[in-house]
Amino acid sequence: MSRLTPFRDVLLVAAFDLRSSLRSWKALGLLALYLAGSMAASGIFVSVLREIEGVLADTLGVAQTSTPGAMTTQLMQSPEVTEMLGGLLGDPELALQLVQIPPLALYYFWLALVLLPVLVTITSADAISFERGTGAARFVLSRTNLGSYVWGKALGQLALMFVGVIAGGVGVWLVGYFSLASFDGPATAAWMFRLGLRTLPWGAAWLGLSLGVSQVTRHWVASLAAAMVMLVAVGIGGQVLLHLDWLTDNAPLVQELLSPLFPAAHKTDLFRPELSRRLPAIAMLIALGASWFSLGTWRLSKVDA
């Protein structure tokens, strides 16, 4: 008799899931789309920089540069930009810290936070439901337990998400390298990698939601549709709780209690440079993802596989 080895099984399922995802047209298409989207968005970012620098050059009465980015560093660290960023974030201290980061890396981080929930939902919503529908899950479940199977799938999808984040990063970096003057390649790459790692807990929260839904049904179309609905509901719900003035004025306690249950409440903290100030947000995001995921697992454990 061969003893059950849950940790080994989780890794085996995760590795198989990642290899399988990278061979499916859907995942490859989405990764390519994400890469193209990141590059296109970076292109727009570079164009905006060019416009700003042009306006600045006209104002100062100096010649415009042929490639944008020559004045970016100085521009970013100017008191006006810092003040504007502080206003946007609602945190002047954080703004002061962020302007030290290469602008393209910061933009990449922001872009990843915006795009990841959608990417993760589309790639992962059918990860388990599809295998339940085709019966492929039964071959695995006759060899390991439900926990190892679903956590292995989660780890595999997390790895797939990281592949996407890295691919997007490479695309953004290349746009910067070829379009920006005085582009500090190594520093930007290092920052992009560090910031890319920070997207993992954010993505994990949305992945937990998506995979939780994926365990509730064996119909992949239904799970994809339900996950999209949940994505919109949780996304909008989080924004409403954070920014609805009526709530702030009339039910601040409700806002204070409920908003941490939505990923949006923890997004800003991921920008903070100090790990100690990021950790609560990271912990909450992972806990949120794990909770939604575990709810799905609990439901799956009560029905026929």
């Binding site: 008799m1 061969s2 059950l4 995802s21 061979r23 085709t134 492929a136 071959f139 006759s142």
Partner: peptide, 20 residues
């Protein structure tokens, strides 16, 4: 699975392995 894996094998009806 803790007791029977490797000892009991199944071919469920209409089930297929991962197509990719």
């Amino acid at each position: 699975p803790a007791i029977h894996r490797g000892r009991v094998a199944l071919l469920p009806q209409d089930c297929e392995l991962n197509p990719h």
